[in-house]
């Protein structure tokens, strides 16, 4: 078991606290079923360093884990890691968590580039991402929340105090997924062909309410995998059974 990064500095009133979903990602990405797959996608020494992107890293626990344990997970330590979060407090938390974890594991650690504030992958050049990790807002809700204007510009400037309403909004943004809990995830799935490099792979967390079998079918049917290739989508990690169904699962998405 690789050690979990410390997140004791993270303000949990403003940033999603690591929970069962975060830990399922850690377990899955470092599992004996995934690490040989990742090393085979990015053979060390003969291929350029992979760029790892986490969308919505929150506390940064997953991105810091991948950064600090690059060598055991990817069989190489020359990886680059990047986060993009809509919540500026999550960006600061992810930066601190990742730099702390990297400095605690200097012999196995990759290179943390930074965490940007942004709306999904809108600011990225096309086909740069080799590993995309996304623990989305997956809970089905009536409405999809939007970021309050006060928090668009960092939110810290008005006396350094975040209002109770804004605090609630930030946490709502971290879990509320709109219809079927899929409104944000669907945007990411639709962008995969543009965001992932040709050798790229995505790890996406889904809950039972997201209708994961239908989601996987939809991905396999996407027509933009490139000539002679098809999208693959397979469940590679699960946790918590509920009425015979897996409560949470990690779906791996790639082209073959």
């Amino acid at each position: 078991m690789l050690p979990t990064p410390t997140t004791s500095h993270v303000p949990y009133s403003l940033v999603y606290e690591p929970a069962e979903d975060s830990f399922l990602l850690l377990d899955t990405l470092s599992s004996p079923s995934q690490t040989p797959f990742l090393s085979s996608l990015f053979p060390p020494a003969t291929t350029p360093p992979p760029l790892i992107l986490e969308i919505g890293p929150g506390s940064g626990v997953v991105l810091a884990f991948l950064t600090a344990h690059a060598l055991p997970i990817f069989s190489r330590s020359d990886i680059l890691t990047l986060g993009i979060d809509i919540n500026s407090f999550a960006c600061s938390s992810t930066t601190t968590t990742s730099l702390l974890a990297a400095s605690s594991h200097p012999t196995t650690s990759g290179h943390f580039l930074g965490c940007l504030q942004g709306d999904l992958t809108g600011c990225l050049r096309s086909k740069q991402v080799d590993v995309l990790v996304f623990n989305p807002p997956y809970v089905p809700t009536e409405e999809l929340p939007t970021l309050p204007a006060t928090l668009r510009e960092g939110g810290k400037e008005k006396g350094g105090k975040v209002t109770f309403e804004d605090e609630s909004k930030l946490l709502e943004l971290s879990y509320a997924g709109g219809k079927d809990g899929m409104e944000t995830t669907d945007r990411v799935i639709d962008s995969l062909g543009e965001v992932l490099s040709d050798r790229g792979v995505a790890y996406l967390l889904l809950c039972a309410g997201n209708k994961p079998e239908e989601v996987k079918q939809r991905i396999r049917g996407m027509g933009n995998a490139g000539e002679g290739r098809q999208w693959k989508a397979e469940t590679v990690g699960t946790s918590g059974r509920q009425a015979g169904w897996e409560k949470l699962q990690i779906v791996r998405i790639w082209r073959e």
Binding site: S92, Q117, D119, G122, C123
Partner: peptide, 14 residues
């Protein structure tokens, strides 16, 4: 112009 503060660029658009 995307502002960068404390090492974090802000790509949220008006």
């Amino acid at each position: 112009e995307y502002a960068v503060r404390e090492g974090i660029p802000n790509f949220l658009l008006p």
